[in-house]
Design a binder for these strands. Structure first.
Lengths: 349, 349
DNA sequence: TTGTAGGCGTTATCAT
DNA sequence: ATGATAACGCCTACAA
């Protein structure tokens, strides 16, 4: 409609005032005569005037854009991890309410692509006011550079030790603990685990929770009961195969992710081991759908929406400087969801 | 590192040339003496110079940013639809390779928030060169305004009839057809369906494919065999309950989404109806995990990665003007994935 | 209350 | 091959 992209100068001319006045009127300054403002705003609406974000950012030095690095499933291109996407949804909603949009970094060559791929550079190029990192490699040297900079950034499941940095994550230790405790309460004594990637914080923490729980419960830790995985289904499948072939196989398996848990269930089914009759399984995440499958999966629910909102909140606080440094990691509670994949162990031990 | 955000002027001063020369050197113009260029580029690297996208966009009138409207699960806040996220992943990868980043629109008040919420306005505000729409309401008046504008836009599962618009989607009709044909080949004659939202293109097309298949197979269409759903699990559950309570219940159900298919399976299980022994179920999507559940779900696979790449491709073509108008809808093939939830019908009819 | 003008960081068009 | 300089669209002192 109308003649495309009106700018503030034309608006000024048409409303018979200067650009300064138009700007002040539109931006809600008080020193503008009501009638003048009204006239300007009406015209702006009629002409469908939209200020150019680039120009404003240039002049204001604020972009009202937040960056997002979402490196999901690089090593597993066919099995995208849905967890971060769910977090992204609520992150989007929360920052939107605060008037921010999200820049999802895709191109590895900001500007003209000279210089190495760099998180920090891409942020500066687009002048984002802060950024969220999800699923990125913790020890990538480029991440380290970002950490040393003072650009506000929050990591999801990723703690960064630097100025204006923060992290949000679930209480993974406690979650794993609850999973094991639940199994123990059901009567299990031979409880194994399939871990996540050990160089990620959730992977390490869930294993720690598992060990802590065993200790507290007086169960004794056995090396052969921990199978190292990578969060993906295939790892759960392989781990279960190995675990069930043990001389003294476990009666229960705590998998550090739902996908691995489903892999465990599948592997069990293949060997004629019934879940939960012969083997109990507890997962982690509470991905959508796992409540619908047979058997419905008992799992530790992460509050993905809460994580996204917390990330938004933390990042905005960092940006508004209303945050002491260093900022403590935000840890969200998890909740054991009892469904049908965990039950008392078979009577015959 | 170094003293934060160097700009082209400082770079010019330090390398002893004018800003014009720096700009030309960095942007690879030929009319720059090799030694000069080398000196400038080295300095730029040392100082970690990054051009400001906003300034460049202002001057160039190209932002190298593409917009994304991802309205996922507004009505179903607890059950985010993962389909679009998988598409988003490959979209991101594809546009990234072309040097674009993605702006995920979150805020409803671009600029100063005067005027109504508007897709078009948000695009113009950020000067995106084109935009992708996923999961948005087809008949939202604001979408209509976007459609009438000549901003390049492609819809995923959404056809827009306007200048520089395009759509990508799976071959939903054919997919539904294949599902029904598969069931028919297995011996089923009483085949019901649970539809998706009828005001979406995929919802309508999958129902059409179902009807077409019945006709072609000479099966005869029965009103009571189509239950109207909304793509979500609960709808599948409710539909199955109704369908199975029929006087002459179907022996097979084609659900227009995997989530509904799982709802169907769950409802069946509750009534003691076994899948696939007593009831065959075929879904649509091939969401991750549905191959792992019990029974592994037979379904029609959508090529989500292909959809994202196609959307990127189409949008870039629209932007580069190398696209006749109107642009034909891109339809991607689907593939029936036979797993275990569909089998021959029980012998006793 | 309003107008003027400088500046934000680049690119691009002229000269030279 | 390089240097000035005018846009690009907006905000914001400062003046009036």
């Amino acid at each position: 409609m109308t003649g495309q992209n009106v700018n503030i100068r034309q608006l000024a001319k048409l409303s018979g005032v200067s650009v300064g006045t138009v700007s002040r009127a539109l931006n809600g300054y008080s020193d503008v005569r009501p009638e003048t403002r009204e006239r300007i705003m009406r015209l702006a609406r009629e002409l469908d005037y939209t200020p150019a974000a680039a120009a404003r950012a240039l002049s204001t030095r604020r972009s009202h854009v937040l960056g997002v690095f979402l490196d999901t499933g690089e090593g597993h291109p066919d099995l995208r991890h849905p967890f971060f996407h769910e977090v992204l949804d609520s992150l989007k909603a929360a920052v939107g309410r605060a008037g921010y949009d999200l820049l999802l970094f895709a191109s590895e060559r900001p500007g003209n692509g000279y210089g190495p791929h760099s998180y920090l550079k891409r942020c500066r190029h687009h002048n984002v006011e802060g950024t969220v990192l999800m699923g990125v490699e913790p020890d990538d040297p480029e991440v380290q550079r970002l950490i040393r900079s003072d650009l506000p950034a929050v990591g999801v499941d990723l703690v960064m030790d630097g100025p204006r940095k923060c992290a949000v994550m679930s209480d993974n230790v406690e979650g794993a603990r609850q999973a094991v405790a639940h199994l123990h309460a059901l009567g299990h004594r031979r409880i194994a685990t399939v871990t996540g990637l050990m160089d990620t914080r959730p992977g390490a923490d869930r294993l720690r929770g598992y060990r802590d729980a065993l200790r507290d419960l007086g169960l004794g830790f056995r090396d052969e009961y921990v199978a190292y995985g990578d969060f993906y289904a295939e790892a759960g499948h392989a781990a279960a195969a190995a675990l069930l072939a043990l001389e003294e196989p476990p009666t229960a398996i705590f998998a550090a992710s739902d996908m691995m848990a489903l892999g465990v269930v599948a592997a069990a089914a293949e060997r004629g081991v019934r879940v939960p009759d012969d083997l109990s399984v507890v997962g982690f995440d509470d991905m959508q759908l796992v409540g619908l499958v047979q058997p419905p999966l008992t799992t530790v629910r992460q509050d993905k929406a809460g994580l996204g909102a917390a990330a938004a909140h933390a990042l905005l606080a960092l940006i508004d400087e209303e945050a002491e440094d260093p900022q403590p990691t935000v840890t969200l509670p998890v909740e054991l969801v009892e469904r049908a994949s965990a039950a008392p162990p078979p009577a015959t031990t």
